[in-house]
Write a protein that binds this DNA or RNA. Structure first.
Lengths: 203, 203
DNA sequence: ACCTGAACACCGTTCAAGT
DNA sequence: ACCTGAACACCGTTCAAGT
């Protein structure tokens, strides 16, 4: 027994990530297993360990791919905007696109934030770079705030993320249905208003 | 074999929840198993199924207890405030207390939001009531906003939750360390400023 | 009535052995 | 060199059998 399909390591890696993505999208993180990924590839489970350190490593690489897809989704949303759109409209577009991606790819998106690194371990650079790219996208739209841009970008991104988490896990629907896009609008608009007012008061 | 400790069902339930809480606090959700919970109680794993429908049911009850502890934590923080404290100071206190609880009890708090219900299933009333209580706490401090209170409460709670999620899972530290309490302050203060400004413009 | 322990169908991971 | 399949130490859940 051996030699069956003869794929390169890079091909095996891509096949495994594609299989894992399909499983998570369909069944959620709980449905993911090395045995299922291997079966879907037509290989034995042990083969995965030629390409990944372990299942955690595979998940980390899947998460990097998910963030890459999210970044592309955000870029497309911005590209659809008229050229003259101001920072506020661009930020609202980013925020709504983020929520839409989270809703559309709920299980894959959840896995990014629910996969806890082992105590003390640090995020692999491949993933950290993806996070930086997303944060940079938001920060770029806040350049007019000057020194406050870094802070504001983190607050707004966190805020939209929190709305997505709580709305999509039914933790806001305690008293009737929730209009998540309305929450996103309120957050972005009021926060920007407040930032502008605070800066006016300073000068 | 049988009859060993002779605990009532209610005692078994409490023992199991206490054991599960210790395991999750120490090892995270990934370390939780029916076999470990049972061993810590001095019972066979099968006994758990006399008291819980399954592991999911146990987790749901643990999560309700966690939200109860969170609610008590918030109440204590408010109680330490001087009697004359205004809504803004009370909201800031709630927000910081929320973040502190999330940090202190990271694994238990994570489990509340990372435990996804099976497709289509609805949250048990015991848990839904706890979520309503927390949201009600925030909403009460926003009564001065009138009709906007429900919306503002959801935005602020989501926002603080998002900051906690991203900060505590290292998803904001992409470019250096993050001062989460400063993000919380900025969110609450700027959002409230913005809300006030928007209301001024209406009238 | 209460609880057990074995059984079943799953896991992640390793590694000698086969081609 | 590449890949397998068996092995090991785990899972959640059920249920006949023992006290």
């Amino acid at each position: 027994m051996a030699r069956k399909a003869q794929h390169s390591k890079e091909e095996l890696r891509a096949m495994a990530l594609a299989a894992a993505r399909e499983i998570v999208a369909a069944e959620g993180a709980a449905g993911l297993s090395t045995r299922k990924v291997a079966a879907r590839m037509g290989y034995a489970a042990g083969t995965l360990y030629l390409v990944f350190r372990n299942l955690d490593d595979l998940v980390l690489q899947l998460n990097a791919a998910t963030l890459e897809a999210l970044d592309a989704h955000l870029a497309e949303a911005l590209a659809r905007l008229p050229a003259g759109a101001g920072p506020r409209q661009r930020l609202l577009t980013l925020a709504h696109a983020y929520y839409l991606f989270a809703q559309e790819h709920f299980h894959l998106w959840s896995l990014v934030f629910e996969h806890h690194l082992p105590e003390g371990e640090t995020m692999p650079e491949s993933l950290a770079a993806r996070v930086r790219a997303l944060l940079g996208r938001v920060e770029a739209e806040l350049a007019h705030l000057g020194a406050g841009a870094a802070l504001a970008a983190r607050v707004l991104w966190s805020g939209v993320h929190g709305i997505a988490v709580l709305a999509l896990t039914d933790n806001l629907a305690a008293t009737g249905p929730v209009d998540a896009p309305a929450l996103v609008d309120s957050l972005v608009n009021r926060y920007l208003d407040g930032f502008a007012a605070a800066r006016r008061n300073q000068s």
